[in-house]
Simulated assay, not measured.
Amino acid sequence: MQKKLNTRSMIFTLFGDYIRYYGNEIWMGSLIKLLEPFHHNEQSVRSAISRMSKQGWVVSRKETNKSYYSLTERGKKRMEEAAGRIYRIEPEKWDGKWRMLLYNIPEEKRQIRDELRKELIWSGFGLLSNGVWITPNNLKEQIYDIIDKYEIKEFVYFFEAENEGFQANQQIIRSCWDIDHINNLYQKFIYAYENKMIENCKKIEQGQMSDKECFVERTLLVHYYRKSLFVDPGIPKELLPKKWLGEYAAKLFNDYYKILAAKANTFFEEIYLAGYSNHEKQTVSK
């Protein structure tokens, strides 16, 4: 597991796992306080939130001398997509169709290509051949959003198709994604957290883990699981190898998450609500 945590990435984790359930807004002072246990100082938090604002993920509002940040509509949609993948236990069933995306971006728009590639990979597309992206999942809505975002409708072709060729569907999967690498990431996650869950469950039952410690542990759990998961395009069950560890890792994640949830939420609420008046606290509480 990686040791150095990216500030921007951690802020996304907090928005996705906590803040969006509490009115989708947080005072900068509370955000700084929540990130202190992860060794992020005030300057790094302010710099990261500034970049996120320029990139269109968050928007700010001022009230007296306080700054509050919330997710934009784009940010909310990304968090919803992420949550659908993070908290899913079983792979989706396959409808037997492949979705294919082809594009021919003109040279004057070449700066869009790298961004488009990142968006497609994040959404779960794999590169079948040069300029041809493919997925067994129904990502029509995500594709339309990406096309509208970059205003490239006239340069994109999008098809739904069935495999009538000579390569088995499982072989197509292996051609587009490194299945063994993804499975290995799940193995590392299981190795890191399987015994840890048992040990910390006992500590919580015996009153040996504080609310703050549970908050840190749950946040790191989500953060690391999210990083492993987003390499996984969410391949349907019918197309996965027999020895697939994704489902076991998902169950481990959900079980441990529930064990930590109550005490973690208590700590978060204490810091979060410090940024609001008594009247406001009644409206922003979960």
Rank of each mutant, 00 (worst) to 15 (best):
I105Q: 05
K263A: 11
A83E: 07
A249L: 05
D178P: 05
I11H: 00
E141C: 06
V59M: 13
H39F: 14
S44I: 06
F159C: 09
V222R: 03
K281G: 07
T266R: 15
G207R: 01
A161Y: 08
A168Q: 15
I173S: 01
L245V: 04
T72D: 03
T13M: 09
M100D: 06
L35W: 01
Y191E: 15
K212Y: 06
G275S: 04
G16S: 12
S70T: 09
Y150D: 03
K212I: 06
K3H: 11
I172D: 03
D211A: 11
I173L: 07
I32A: 04
L139S: 02
G96A: 08
E42S: 14
S129C: 09
R51I: 09
Y191I: 08
A250D: 02
K281E: 09
F253A: 02
L101G: 00
R88W: 03
Y225C: 05
K251H: 12
E90G: 03
N41Y: 12
Q187V: 08
A48D: 01
R113C: 08
I89Y: 08
A82T: 11
C214W: 01
F268M: 10
Q171K: 13
F267W: 15
Q171E: 13
E217T: 13
Q55Y: 14
Y256G: 02
Y257R: 14
S67P: 04
